[in-house]
Simulated assay, not measured.
Amino acid sequence: MQLILLTINAVGLLLTFSRSVWILWLISAVAVLLLIPQLRTKKSIVYMAGCHLASLIIAMAIKQDVLFFLNRVASIQTKTLEFQIRLVYWKDSFQMFMDYLWGGTGGGGWAVLQHAYQSQEYFVKFIHNHYVQVFLDIGLIGGLCWLALIAVFVKNGLPLLKSASSTQDVENKGLFIFITVMLLHAGFDFDLTFPLMLTLLVSLMLLMPQKVMALEVKRVKLIAAGTVVILVAFFFGRMAAGYHWKEQAVRAVRANDLVYAQEQLKRAERAVPWSSSVLYESAKIYVRMGNGSGDSSHYEKAEGELLKAKGMVPEQKLYNDLLESINKNE
Results as ranks from 00 to 15, higher is better:
Ile138Glu: 11
Trp25Lys: 06
Val112Tyr: 09
Leu136Lys: 08
Pro159Ser: 00
Pro209Val: 00
Leu206Asn: 10
Phe123Pro: 05
Ala268Ser: 15
Asp321Trp: 02
Thr180Asp: 00
Leu323Phe: 10
Val73Thr: 06
Leu140Phe: 15
Gln168Pro: 08
Thr167Asn: 11
Trp90Ser: 01
Val124Glu: 13
Met312Ser: 06
Val30Met: 05
Phe68Pro: 15
Glu216Ala: 08
Ile285Leu: 02
Ala233Thr: 15
Tyr286Arg: 03
Ser119Asp: 07
Tyr243Arg: 05
Gln264Trp: 02
Ile141Tyr: 11
Leu140Arg: 04
Cys145Phe: 13
Glu281Asp: 09
Leu6Trp: 09
Met205Glu: 05
Gln38Arg: 05
Met197Glu: 12
Leu14Gly: 04
Leu201Thr: 10
Thr193Val: 10
Ile138Tyr: 12
Ile230Ser: 09
Val32Leu: 07
Phe153Ser: 00
Tyr47Asn: 10
Tyr299Lys: 02
Ala233Arg: 08
Gly226Val: 11
Leu161Ala: 00
Val124Gly: 07
Glu247Gln: 15
Tyr89Gly: 03
Ala225Gly: 10
Leu149Ile: 12
Glu263His: 11
Ser277Gln: 15
Arg40Cys: 02
Gln168Ala: 10
Asn256Leu: 02
Trp146Leu: 00
Leu144Ile: 09
Leu67Asp: 03
Met289Ala: 00
Arg40Gly: 03
Gly142Ala: 02
Glu324His: 06
Arg219Gln: 13
Ser282Asp: 10
Ala186Val: 02
Glu247Arg: 14
Ile127Pro: 10
Gly304Ala: 04
Val32Thr: 08
Ala29Ile: 00
Thr78Trp: 15
Gln120Asp: 08
Ser20Asn: 13
Pro273Ile: 02
Tyr131Phe: 06
Gln210His: 13
Met48His: 12
Val152Ala: 00
Met98Val: 05
Leu279Phe: 14
Val132Ala: 04
Met312Gln: 12
Gly12Arg: 13
Leu265Tyr: 12
Ile85Asp: 11
Asn156Thr: 01
Lys42Ser: 07
Lys125Glu: 14
Gln95Pro: 11
Ala283Pro: 12
Leu258Cys: 00
His130Asp: 13
Lys308Ile: 09
Ser166Trp: 10
Met239Trp: 15
Val259Gly: 04
Val229Ala: 14
Ser93Met: 08
Glu300Ile: 05
Ser325Phe: 03
Asn291Trp: 03
Met208Arg: 05
Gln262Glu: 05
Val154Asn: 00
Glu121Asp: 09
Val202Arg: 04
Ser119Arg: 12
Ala61Lys: 14
Ala214Met: 08
Glu305Leu: 01
Thr105Asp: 02
Leu306Asn: 06
Leu136Cys: 06
Thr105Ile: 02
Ala271Asn: 11
Arg288Thr: 04
Val30Trp: 06
Val46Pro: 13
Gly106Arg: 03
